Computed example of a mutant assay.
Amino acid sequence: MDRLSLNQITTNGWSLPEAVAGCAQAGVGWISLWRDKVAEVGVTAAADMVRRNGLQVSSLCRGGFLTGVAPDGSDVDGIADTAVAIEEAARLGAEVLVLVVGGIAGNDLAGSRQRVADGVGELVPLAARHGVRLGLEPLHPIQCAERSVLSTLDQALDIAEQHPAETVGVIVDEFHVWWDPRVEQAITRAAGRIAGFHVCDQLVPLPDPLLGRGLPGQGPIEHRRLRACVEAAGYRGPIEVEVFNAELWRRPGAEVLAEVISSYAEHVA
């Protein structure tokens, strides 16, 4: 249980002060911060708040959109924004910055993936100077067009392996990779490169490609099998429970966190 981390999106109705206090009161020692929540209080205040409550930051979500395309289809300077996020991560004590790399630019999938590779290469020196690891997170193929042109761990590793492992790794998010027939081989390939392990379940039937997540145990994902795979590949870091679910977001944060802890204990730990 000492590896459990609350990803802030799971209790999205909570402010940062509420989430930090809630984790401290519940005995959860790790938290994954989201930049919009941090911005509400400021980076300095957020870092101080985390330290005063005895928590550690497992990751900062998120940078990326290196293809230059935001989820709503608008143009975005992903390089500049991610550079800011790297500095924020360092100030918050987050060793990992999660990258969602962006959707297709100009209907050119191969070219969009090359933009991601080029963008990562441009950002690596800054990340190395700040001691922040870039975590490439592949997303489910249904989100390829608008959120991530990286759909598998193998595709993320093709880019990560061009750089030092301590600076560029990959995020293993169950929701996005559990379906992949090569997931076990890809996790083995990722040995030394796993920067984060995110757990949740997929709701059946899937109500929404973004918000169709449930707590561990509410769907078909084999959590302990995937956990065994990432541990065999050498990962011993925090395990984030990350659930995008509108119903959870409407409920009291303390109630949701209690269910996070119990579902993690029963189905993951």
Rank of each mutant, 00 (worst) to 15 (best):
R3A: 10
R213W: 00
W249I: 01
D154V: 03
V132T: 09
E137L: 03
E40D: 14
V260L: 01
Y235C: 04
I221M: 09
L66T: 02
E87Q: 15
V183I: 15
D118A: 03
L248D: 01
L55E: 05
D154A: 13
R113C: 01
A186G: 03
G219P: 05
D2E: 14
L33P: 08
N107K: 11
Y264S: 07
G102A: 10
R182H: 14
V50Q: 13
R189V: 06
P17H: 04
E88D: 15
A94K: 10
A127R: 09
V260C: 03
I171Q: 03
C200H: 00
G169R: 01
G93L: 07
P207Y: 07
M1G: 13
S5Q: 02
G63S: 08
V177T: 11
N7S: 14
H176Y: 09
G73S: 07
V38N: 12
E255G: 04
Q8T: 14
H176Q: 13
A228H: 10
G131W: 12
G196R: 05
G42M: 08
G64T: 03
L16S: 08
L153W: 01
L226A: 05
M1S: 13
I79Q: 04
A39C: 04
A80T: 06
A190K: 05
L210T: 08
A94T: 10
L134D: 02
G54W: 02
H140K: 07
R227N: 01
D81F: 13
L92I: 05
A265I: 01
V132A: 06
A165H: 09
P17V: 06
G64A: 06
A83S: 15
L123K: 02
L126C: 00
V101N: 03
W34K: 15
D180Q: 09
V84L: 13
G196T: 10
V230R: 06
L99M: 11
V230F: 12
V124K: 00
N12V: 03
Y264F: 15
A26D: 03
H198W: 02
L150P: 12
R51D: 10
F244E: 01
L55W: 08
A94W: 08
S148F: 14
A191Q: 11
C144H: 04
V199I: 09
E95V: 04
I171C: 03
D81G: 13
H163K: 02
G212T: 02
A70S: 12
P141A: 11
A89Q: 10
A190M: 12
A195V: 02
L157P: 09
Y235Q: 04
V183T: 08
G63C: 12
Q8I: 06
G217K: 07
S151G: 15
S262I: 08
E259H: 07
A160T: 04
D48V: 04
P207E: 02
A190Y: 06
S148N: 11
L66A: 05
R133H: 06
Q218G: 12
F244D: 01
H223V: 02
A90Q: 14
A265T: 12
H163A: 01
L109F: 14
M49N: 07
A254P: 06
G54I: 12
Q162K: 13
E259L: 15
I86K: 05
E146I: 13
P138E: 11
E255P: 01
G121D: 04
